[in-house]
C-alpha cells in the first residue's frame, strides 16, 4: 500500500492549518459476500480539489454512495467536519454539508431550471407550512431571497436566461452543469461530482475545469470528483486517490500518480517487472 496512511493526508499548503472537511477511516462495505470497498482511507482539506480515479467497477461510485449515506458502511467511519456520520441518513448528510451530482443525470426533468435550483435551496428557506398556506410575510421574503440566490448561482454557468426552461429540454452539458448548481444550492462544505465531464466535448471540459476552480475559490469549499477524463483530473485536482477492486492503490499529487507503477498496472495491466 503506497501512501495509504490516514495519518499522512495529502493536503494542499493552504489547508494545513484548518480541520479537514472529510476523513474516512478504514471504510468498507460488503454486498453479501462481495467486498465492494475495503479499507478506504482519505482525508480532504477544507478547500481542496481532490480526484478519485480508477478503472471501471473499482468502486468509485460506491464510495460516493457511502459518503452520502445511500449505503451504510459495513466497517470504518466517516467524519464530516470532525463529526461522525454514523447515524445519519442521506438527508442529514446533506444538511451536514455533503452535496453530490450523479453519474447518470438525476435532474427533476419535468420542472423548470429555476424550480430545480429552488428545490436545492429547500432547506435554506425557513418558512413553515402555515406561512406557505396563508402567504405570510416570511413566505414572500424567503421566496424572493431564494429566487435571487438561485439566479446568482445559475449565473456561475451563465444559465440565468434559461431559468424558466424545462430542465429536461436542456442540452446534455447544461443538464450536468445544472446538477452542479443544484448541488451548490444546498450550501455544501464538500461537493461530490460524479463524472462531471461525461458526454462533454473538449471545449466544454475546459470550461468545466475553470468553473470547478472558480467554484472552489468563490465558495471556499472542498470538491471530490470522479472522472475518467485524465486531462480534467490532472488539470484541476490537487490530490488524487486511485481505487482498484475496492482498495486504494495509490495516493498523491497528479505528478506522482502519473508515474506510479501500480496505477499504470491497474489501468494497462501487468507488463513491467515490478511484480516482486
Amino acid at each position: 500500500m503506497v501512501n495509504n496512511d490516514p495519518k499522512a493526508p495529502l493536503l494542499p499548503e493552504r489547508d494545513k492549518e484548518r480541520n479537514p472537511v472529510l476523513e474516512c477511516v478504514g471504510l468498507g462495505i460488503d454486498f453479501g459476500g462481495l467486498t465492494a470497498v475495503d479499507d478506504f482511507n482519505i482525508t480532504i482539506g477544507a478547500t481542496e480539489i481532490c480526484g478519485l480515479i480508477g478503472p471501471n467497477g473499482a468502486g468509485k461510485t460506491t464510495v460516493f454512495n457511502l459518503l452520502t449515506k445511500v449505503y451504510q458502511p459495513t466497517r470504518g467511519s466517516i467524519y464530516l467536519d470532525g463529526k461522525d456520520t454514523k447515524h445519519m441518513n442521506t438527508v442529514r448528510a446533506n444538511k451536514a454539508g455533503i452535496a453530490r451530482t450523479f453519474q447518470n443525470i438525476r435532474l427533476f426533468k419535468g420542472l423548470t431550471v429555476m424550480e430545480n435550483v429552488l428545490i436545492g435551496l429547500h432547506n435554506e428557506m425557513d418558512y413553515r407550512l402555515g406561512g406557505a398556506l396563508f402567504r405570510l410575510p416570511n413566505y414572500w421574503k424567503a421566496e424572493r431571497i431564494a429566487r435571487e440566490r438561485a439566479l446568482e448561482l445559475l449565473s456561475i454557468f451563465d444559465m440565468q436566461d434559461f431559468a424558466e426552461h424545462k430542465s429536461g429540454s436542456l442540452p446534455y452539458g447544461s443538464q450536468r452543469r445544472l446538477e452542479i448548481v443544484r448541488a451548490l444550492a444546498t450550501n455544501p462544505t464538500l461537493l461530490l461530482l460524479d463524472e462531471p465531464a461525461a458526454g462533454m466535448n473538449p471545449a466544454e471540459t475546459d470550461d468545466l475545469m475553470s468553473n470547478i476552480k472558480k467554484i472552489q475559490e468563490t465558495f471556499q469549499i472542498a470538491i471530490l470528483l470522479i472522472e475518467h477524463d485524465m486531462s480534467l483530473v490532472m488539470g484541476v485536482c490537487e490530490g488524487i486517490a486511485v481505487l482498484n477492486y475496492g482498495k486504494l492503490i495509490a495516493k498523491g499529487t497528479p505528478a506522482e500518480i502519473q508515474n506510479n507503477p501500480k496505477v499504470i498496472e491497474a489501468y494497462l495491466g501487468a507488463g513491467g517487472g515490478d511484480d516482486a
Binding site: T68, V70, N89, T90, V91, N94, K95, A99, R100, F102, R106, L107, F108, K109, G110, L111, E115, L118, I119, G120, L121, H122, N123, M125, Y127, L129, A132, L133, F134, R135, Y139, A142, E143, A146, R182, A183, A185, T186
Partner: peptide, 29 residues
C-alpha cells in the same frame, strides 16, 4: 395551489420527479 407554489410543494414535486435526487437535495421524502 398555495401548497404547491411553496417550498413544500416543490419538495412534493421533486419526489415525483426523482426520489433519490430529492433526498440528496436534503428533502425528507
Amino acid at each position: 395551489h398555495m401548497l404547491m407554489k411553496s417550498r413544500h410543494g416543490r419538495a412534493i414535486l421533486s419526489i415525483r420527479e426523482n426520489e433519490i435526487a430529492a433526498e440528496s437535495c436534503g428533502i425528507k421524502t
